[in-house]
Write a protein that binds this DNA or RNA. Structure first.
Lengths: 233, 233
DNA sequence: CTTCAAAGGACAATGCCGTTGTCGTAGGCT
DNA sequence: AGCCTACGACAACGGCATTGTCCTTTGAAG
């Protein structure tokens, strides 16, 4: 076979599938996003995507080389969505907080794609725009260049790392997801004070706190520490 | 079949496989780590693991309920290795710094496994020991329980999230790894000041800083912020 | 209009995968 | 010495991504 993919721009024919769908990169990517959103993590397989589109699974290989290729196309869409509509306010802490939470939220909306996207440097337009914006906020806040770069690095890596981390939790099969949670609710709640005094003393608090993401608070700590450094200059 | 797993502690018989291996949780987990390390994360399948052990794939189900269970055991092994030989010093900041860097280092030693394991709550022995130790450091430092738990959450998730993030970079094929770096060295270095003034102004610093992990500095910021909160109590 | 190359959807097959029902053997207790 | 059953082995099932091949349909050229 060697190669059956034709770039979207060079497509001339549009032939409907047996069930009447007219395929295109756009339609496939959007359906994939819907599939992930509606039926959770494991739902994205070539077979199921084909079924959702009303097309034979193998037909998708006319549009993407393989599943990774497809997921990258989906991921590309996400990078843009994280920034969509953001505007600088002039308050650097508020701005960074907003950017951090936006990145986190955008990726949580599509956990499957997030896991792939979060640790790749694309060097493409949307990424460059984000780097530029964050560096701008820091430099305008008064951080010297070297310090701005260090904080940028910690800030962005932390946002992406947590995004991937929390996405991974969401992308788990429901059973495993429930099991992970149950560990805090049941397992740790029962450890005896004799062997695990600190866990026993805080079990209730742990079970409550570990339900959610650690990111918002971690972000707050990072912003606090950065502010302290700005003052100390 | 319903249930064929017997807890390691209650095992009495040790029957060698056809090829002579004597199975045990330990042997299986260690072989899994080797397999992942040598042939990549994709190499970990029940079938291949069975082959590497000289046992029928189905035999592993006498030791683990399913692959996820096995993966959790591998994850717990990594957590155990991170703590091996650690001792509290009484200086809470130094202690947390040491634990954080140890976790990070232990996972970097097995990048492929780290990617699979870093997102999971194992509920197993080594994890409980780590939770207990970290909570102990924070409570002894004087943080009230609720605050200790919040900081524990941020601290541990940050360590694991960065561990997974940096592991993913290490686990990339060398070519892709080089390409990622090149983005900072070449791509961003060439963006014109007209469109990306902040990147242009810091390109050299960026290229240098983005080579390494953002974790050590992010950890420092977290510890600084926590210390400030302790003082403010 | 008619023609006709080839785009692209469908089918079938390949070789993975995790998992489970079942069987027989041998380990170790009494 | 004899029994029970733990546990390794075998075989089979259904689902996965991917690919070789066929054949219908498209749409441009004449």
């Amino acid at each position: 076979m060697s190669e059956r993919v034709i770039p979207e721009s060079q497509r001339r024919r549009r032939r409907p599938t047996k069930q009447g769908t007219v395929l295109s990169e756009q339609v496939i990517v959007e359906t994939a996003l819907q599939l992930i959103g509606r039926h959770g993590a494991g739902a994205l397989s070539v077979r199921r995507l084909g079924a959702a589109l009303g097309a034979d699974p193998s037909s998708l290989y006319r549009y993407f080389h393989n599943t990774d290729d497809l997921l990258l196309a989906v991921a590309d869409e996400l990078i843009g969505r994280a920034q969509y509509g953001w505007q600088a306010t002039g308050d650097w802490q508020a701005d960074l907080r907003a950017i951090g939470l936006r990145i986190h939220a955008a990726y949580q909306a599509h956990p499957q794609a997030a896991m792939l996207a979060a640790h790749r440097t694309t060097g493409r337009e949307n990424e460059a725009r984000a780097v530029e914006a964050i560096l701008g906020v820091l430099r305008r806040a008064g951080f010297p260049d070297a310090e701005a770069v260090r904080i940028y690095h910690a800030f962005v890596d932390q946002a992406l790392a947590f995004a991937a981390q929390d996405a991974a939790a969401l992308a788990l099969p429901p059973a495993a997801q429930a099991a992970d949670l149950a560990v805090w609710q049941a397992n740790y709640a029962r450890l005896p004070a004799a062997t695990h005094p600190n866990i026993a003393a805080t079990a209730r608090l742990l079970a409550a706190d570990m339900r959610g993401s650690g990111y918002p608070f971690a972000l707050e700590l990072l912003l606090d520490a950065a502010a302290a450094r700005l003052v100390a200059l």
